[in-house]
């Protein structure tokens, strides 16, 4: 940046201040790749996570995060790319969940909960069958963002473009679906079709990010930034944008903490995102309590969020 007279008189104090925040990225190419991967994950997670939060799909997101593990393990056993296995696992999970949901009239969360723990257990059993996989399991569950390759960055970018493109085309049915699925049906946008497309986007996001933040932690990146944004935004588009910014900040701060204190990068990113969520939650609660006094008791309907 140009040092305009007065505002920035000397270069050295600025370097002292900014050094610990910028130098790791200037000196280590792997950190730049990790940051890019984190930003790309943040964008697709903000878009998809917005609908996960608005439609209450957190449970299914979690199920997908567990369901891809045996798929990845199976692919590694067969010598296939992990992404192929993750796709099969995710599709199997969606099929299983929708079958249970359609068959049972009552709340299906017991069956679904059991299904996804069973999938996780199956994945662990498969991985433990071969001792050479021991390290892979941690990598699959928690990601290896510091080892992000140029190829996986390209895959991540392509997935982000697909997620963004589909969300743009389906913006109206997705909004109707979040507002009221029956309104979507009556308006001629079949809720079942667009619900399926939404689930596929969640699956795509989970599958692609298993290399960066890992299958378990991607769930945090789906929920935390979008959840914080839901508390702040008054429009769906704004919610996505705020979510993406929170995700990107979390990636940057997480990587920085991980670099300076030598702790797990992906997990730190998710921790930072969660911390932001709870800070926003606390902030909005305090603000509501402060403004509640001057308000008629029954005038504004306050939602469950």
């Amino acid at each position: 940046m140009l040092s305009s007279a007065g505002s920035c008189p000397a270069a050295s104090p600025r370097e002292v201040v900014m050094g610990p925040f910028l130098d790791p990225f200037l000196e280590n190419e792997f950190l730049v790749r990790a940051l890019l991967a984190g930003v790309l994950v943040s964008i697709s997670c903000a878009i998809v996570g917005t609908f996960v939060v608005l439609r209450g799909l957190a449970f299914i997101g979690d199920a997908l995060a567990h369901g891809v593990l045996p798929g990845i393990a199976g692919a590694l056993l067969l010598g296939l790319p992990g992404m192929v296995g993750a796709t099969v696992g995710a599709l199997a999970m969606i099929a299983g969940v929708s079958l249970i949901t359609r068959r049972s009239r009552l709340s299906s969360d017991t069956a679904i909960g059991l299904l996804f723990v069973a999938m996780l257990a199956l994945g662990v059993v498969m991985v433990s069958s071969s001792s050479s996989f021991a390290g892979d399991l941690v990598g699959i569950l928690f990601g290896q963002i510091l080892g992000t390759s140029v190829e996986s960055l390209a895959v991540q970018a392509a997935a982000t473009v697909v997620v963004g493109g589909v969300a743009f085309v389906c913006a109206r049915p997705f909004l109707l679906l979040s507002f009221d699925p029956e309104q979507a049906d009556v308006a001629g946008f079949p809720s079942r079709r667009y619900h399926a497309i939404m689930l596929l986007l969640v699956a795509l996001t989970v599958i692609v990010s298993f290399q960066t933040v890992g299958t378990l932690l991607v769930f945090g990146m789906l929920l935390a930034p979008a959840g914080a944004a839901a508390l702040l935004a008054h429009r769906v588009g704004a919610m996505m944008a705020i979510g993406a910014v929170i995700g990107a900040i979390s990636s940057y701060v997480g990587l920085l903490i991980s670099y300076h204190f030598d702790v797990a990068a992906g997990a730190t990113m998710v921790l930072v995102a969660s911390a932001i969520f709870f800070a926003v939650l606390a902030g909005t609660n305090i603000r509501e309590r402060l403004t509640a006094d001057g308000r008629e008791p029954d005038a504004p309907a306050t939602g469950p969020l």
């Binding site: 109206r172 909004l175 109707l176 507002f179 839901a230 935004a233 429009r235 939602g303 469950p304």
Partner: peptide
């Protein structure tokens, strides 16, 4: 009650009427 969670302005709800 589903509208409660959604970050939506009133006008956007009415605009949905024109989507079909």
């Amino acid at each position: 009650a589903s509208g409660f969670v959604l970050p939506l302005r009133a006008i956007e709800v009415v605009r949905m009427a024109r989507y079909p």
